[in-house]
Amino acid sequence: MASPFPTSSSAPGEGNLVVDVMPQKISGLSAMTFQYPLKLISPSSTSYQKSVLVFLLTYGGGLVGGDQVNLKIIVKKTSKLSIVTQGHTKIFKSLSPDIVTRQKLQVMIESGAALCLLPDPVQPFQFSAYEQSQIFEVADTGSLCLLDWVSAGRTARGEDWDFWKWSGRNEVWAASEAGRKRRLLLRDNVFLNAQELNDEDRDHSVRRKMQGLGIFGTLVLRGPLMEKLALFFLEEFAALPRIGSRDFRSQDMKDKDSSLVLSPQEAWRKQRLRQEALDGVLWSAAKVRGCTVIKFGTCTVEGGRVWIGGMIKQEGSISDKFGEDSIMCIR
């Protein structure tokens, strides 16, 4: 007997998400489908929410070797979407390096729309093989905030970049307009492969390359809603103390300077710099073809969270525009 229900449009691991502006002028979900092992949850919308909040979940909090997740998102004109996760996305071990766990994200951000993707870090376990591809097509006035970070694994078990393979691809394309092809604005590929360096110590080649970092991340900002935040990062980067500089002030001057009352901004910066030194934070910010790219690495996952969370909270425009919940993973 033929099923009376319409056939399912989703396949295993596939998901679809469409965000649009609702009649009452707030952003809302106009479509959401997903299938195991992917799960999407969105709290019911309220009239005062600044953006639609969606939890990107996986059963068991991670992806088992060979899982394929494929999520397509459309953020329609002038609507706003924030995506968060429920914890580190764990990548469990694969039976062999050829069995690759994949996560694919394809996003279309229309004009005036915005997406804020601030998830928890990906945590690849020992002997895992993982590929991630996140492709964003952003219209001229669309905005994007993307955080992509990966940790050294289960450090409490002694893991330290012991996976087989981790590869991450982030692409930002300028959406095609009348008569013009879409154009690549930014391609940030990172390939960490245990079998690559030309040395005898292949088992630890990724660990050697990571130079003691416990987490490595990239933040990509683009569009009018992110302008303030991008500028904030660039200015803070320019204001970093010079490496290898010496303090040539006399003792008198030092005493005099330390008695000055610092502005809240300066006091915060001083405190942050102290914390950066403590956690071994290395970071850089640069403008890449209309996007701003911030790369950072710290010795511990917690140090990384404190740093990126501190920066984004201090500046404040993300929670202003997307709501407090959008930054829950980096608090």
Binding site: D188, N189, F191, N193, M210, F216, R242, S284, K295, G297
Partner: peptide
């Protein structure tokens, strides 16, 4: 040998900390 057949779409950073070192060159005092 390793990159002989690599397409430009698959070109990418294999030593992420290199981007930090190069990017932070501007921060050197001298």
């Amino acid at each position: 040998e390793r990159v002989w057949d690599t397409s430009i779409e698959d070109a990418g950073q294999s030593v992420p900390i290199m981007d930090l070192w190069v990017g932070r060159h501007e921060m050197l005092y001298s």
